[in-house]
């Protein structure tokens, strides 16, 4: 496969809890093309989120190699990974993970604090991101003053405010009703199509997975089946 943004080669991930050894990923191989929208499905405990964490540089494999945009994440230091994430990856979580003490705008601004942008420039970027997710009028609201869908939109705005290459979504609609979930998926789809973001989405929901260009199923730490959506 050419033009691969993400390459996962013979990746093993083992957790040990006391004397117990849990093989979460077993020699996993995966390539994701630049601009692709990939859905990862599978039962709980199949290793979907672990794989997403490895691709996002949040965790390291026990063995094997994870390369994103030509960068070998398995060799990078914790500090380098943090800086890389700030520039290249946006994360969207099931439970939004907004900081409750900050307004929507301040939450979106968080990744920009790590850049050298001035306050005015940061505000401009935040306004653009909030406009893109349709929440300009909620900039000054705190998470508890927003609905679930609005919170997730703020989460998406935070994920894209740095204009990352890769969007990693972990059950982004898992906590939303069907209609709101549809709106969020529309937004993620638009980010993929219009803004050419590479999207990897973990989901249990077949309807959500159908929005992706490719669906992969995982079970017990391996990819068991691949299908085109």
């Amino acid at each position: 496969m050419t033009d691969a943004l993400v390459q996962v080669s013979d990746v093993h991930k083992v957790y040990t809890r006391g004397a117990e050894r849990v093989d979460v990923l077993k020699g996993l191989e995966l390539e994701v093309r630049r601009g692709e929208f990939l859905a990862l499905m599978g039962p709980s405990g199949s290793g979907k989120t672990t794989l997403l964490n490895l691709i996002g540089g949040l965790d390291k494999p026990t063995s094997g190699r994870v390369t994103v945009g030509g960068r070998d994440l398995t060799r990078a230091s914790s500090r380098d990974l943090a800086r890389w994430r700030a520039q290249h990856v946006g994360f969207i979580f099931q439970f939004y993970n907004l900081l409750p003490v900050l307004t929507a705008a301040r939450n979106v601004e968080l990744p920009l604090l790590l850049t050298g942008l001035s306050r005015a420039e940061r505000r401009k970027h935040v306004a653009t991101a909030l406009e893109l997710v349709g929440l300009t009028d909620r900039a000054g609201h705190y998470p508890m003053q927003l609905s679930g869908g609005q919170e997730q939109r703020v989460g998406i705005a935070r994920a894209i405010v740095n204009d990352p290459t890769l969007l990693l979504c972990d059950e982004p609609t898992g906590d939303l009703d069907r209609q709101t979930a549809g709106e969020i998926l529309d937004l993620i789809g638009e980010l993929n199509r219009r803004y050419e973001k590479t999207v990897i989405m973990v989901t249990h929901d077949p309807l959500a997975a159908e929005r992706a260009g490719r669906i992969l199923h995982m079970d017990k730490g391996t990819l068991v089946e691949a299908q085109a959506a």
């Binding site: 800086r83 994360f91 900081l99 968080l110």
Partner: peptide
């Protein structure tokens, strides 16, 4: 704890 995890996820280093 989870909020600190979020900060690290979006790119805050351990030292920050």
């Amino acid at each position: 704890t989870s909020e600190l995890g979020v900060l690290k996820t979006v790119g805050f280093t351990d030292l920050t």
